[in-house]
Design a protein around this nucleic acid. Structure first.
Length: 420
RNA sequence: GUGAGAGUAGCUCAGUUGGCAGAGCACUGGAUUGUGGCUCCAGUGGUCGUGGGUUCAAGUCCCAUCUCUCACCCCA
């Protein structure tokens, strides 16, 4: 039995300087959410279990085996949220937000919880950001959201990702496809893996996703869903692709792209990157018309996506990571206890003018102050010793070129106001 | 839930047929009394994941267990 205190399996601490990268990623997304008119909605970490059972679907892996569910002291079944959409939809219905027409585009951000075996890019507490658009069933709004994604990814230095799209039809046309698919799969049953044999009855669409070679060969002989779309879905899908081309957004049509959550209809999409191993999807989403009604609200449409912050941070290029590290601008080195009151005045002056300053109150030699300042990557060191106190000045050293000068207080203040 | 690999200093790791617990980096101090990076010198730092077993003797062999990693699966 290990004595050292440690965190729960599958969860982790985000430490500096890594946390700067997280703030960078989250900041870029928030900026683009705002530019595209999304308002933040803060949803609770946990809900009554039924919200997710009904929202995500009883047959899904998430609901069947991955949720953190427990009874609270009132014996209510509570579940830590495994995703965000169900909660946003619940809030949308609960507060009658469909009556307030200006607010139909939301974004959320925060930790999600799923009980899974941890591996690269997959943790039991992981972080998602996502958006939801209600009451707009157009292809246009889908392309608007994807354009936002493309712009945000560009700003974060992603240039070799792949956007996959598909349409999985609606409640009118998908059943027909499923029926045909199920019949054809039964004809080739002997060549499928055990899991897929089970899926034929349970959820044949999942067979399309199977990565085993034998199953893929069978799948390659199967019809694709886009050939079975009803007129409405086909038109919607065609318009969607047309607009993507028009916006010069490159994409790959992947008729095998099936989202794992029950609520999706028509457009689905995901973005894949190459350097993440098996967990290569950094974001994904689609349309979920019917979900709001399913959860007891009016029959309004829905469209959205979620991105994995953990994976986004992992996939970021090294030079972008380094650029996002946030160092203090100033370090103050004081020499001897007697100059501490004066040093406080100087530090306050720097900070009042909007510049970050780090110091260390352990009695140190100037050499060790300088070493620390160097490690902190600061731009300037302010040195305060008895000489400076006597003259009422400061010694300002530029750490990039090594130059330094004595500077009186009013000149120093001018310097602080003007630089940058 | 299934399979494989790993766990030794803060980090990355070496450690031979079982025989004194090691290196590099990092950290602290010094070479330079009030000046960083480069160099040199010195020092601090370990219940070898944990529990048990075999043995005169276990980091090393055996069993169990925990955690991490990768993959399956699933998804963001």
């Amino acid at each position: 039995m290990s004595q050292k205190i440690k965190c729960v399996k599958g969860v982790r601490d985000i430490l500096p300087p890594e946390v700067d990268v997280w703030n960078f990623v989250e900041g870029v997304w928030k900026k683009y959410f705002s530019l595209y008119g999304f308002k933040e909605i803060r949803i609770p970490i946990f809900e009554y279990t039924g919200v997710f059972q009904r929202g995500i679907g009883e047959g899904t892996d998430i609901v069947e085996k991955e949720m953190y569910t427990f009874l609270d002291k009132s014996k209510n079944s509570i579940t830590l949220r495994p995703e965000g959409t169900a909660s946003v939809v619940r809030a949308y219905i609960e507060h009658n937000l469909y009556m307030e027409s200006p607010f139909n585009k939301f974004f959320y951000s925060g930790p999600m919880f799923r009980y899974e075996r941890p591996q690269k890019g997959r943790y039991r507490q992981f972080y998602q950001m996502g958006v939801e658009v209600f009451d707009d069933d157009s292809s246009e709004v889908e392309v608007e959201v994807i354009e936002m994604i493309v712009e945000a990814l560009k700003e974060m230095g992603f240039n070799d990702y792949q956007l996959n799209i598909n349409s999985i039809g609606c409640k009118n046309c998908r059943p027909k496809f499923i029926e045909v698919l199920r019949e054809k799969l039964k004809g080739s049953m002997d060549r499928l893996c055990e899991d897929c044999k089970r899926r034929i009855d349970l959820n044949p669409l999942r067979v399309l996703d199977c990565k085993k070679d034998s199953c893929r060969r069978v799948v390659s002989e199967m019809p694709v869903i886009t050939e079975f779309l009803c007129d409405g879905c086909r038109e919607h899908h065609h318009r969607f692709k047309e607009l993507l081309v028009n916006r010069k957004i490159s994409f790959v049509e992947n008729p095998l792209l099936v989202r794992g959550l029950d609520y999706y209809v028509r457009t689905t999409f995901e973005v894949l990157v190459g350097n993440l191993g098996a967990q290569n999807a950094i974001l994904g989403g689609g349309r979920y018309d019917g979900l709001v009604k399913e959860l007891g609200g009016p029959d309004v449409s829905g469209f959205g996506f979620a991105l994995g912050v953990d994976r986004m941070v992992l996939a970021l290029k090294e030079d972008v990571r380094e650029k996002s590290y946030d160092y203090p601008e100033f370090y103050l080195a004081f020499l001897g206890e007697d100059v501490i009151p004066y040093s406080f005045e100087i530090m306050n002056l720097v900070r009042k003018n909007g510049h970050s300053l780090y110091t260390n109150f352990r009695g140190r030699s100037l050499k060790s102050h300088m070493r620390l300042a160097n490690k902190l990557n600061v731009k300037y060191v302010v040195i305060i010793g008895e000489n400076e106190v006597k003259k009422g000045c400061a010694l300002l050293k530029n750490m990039e070129n090594g130059s330094q000068r004595e500077i009186n207080i009013s000149d120093f203040e001018n310097f602080l106001v003007n630089y940058n």
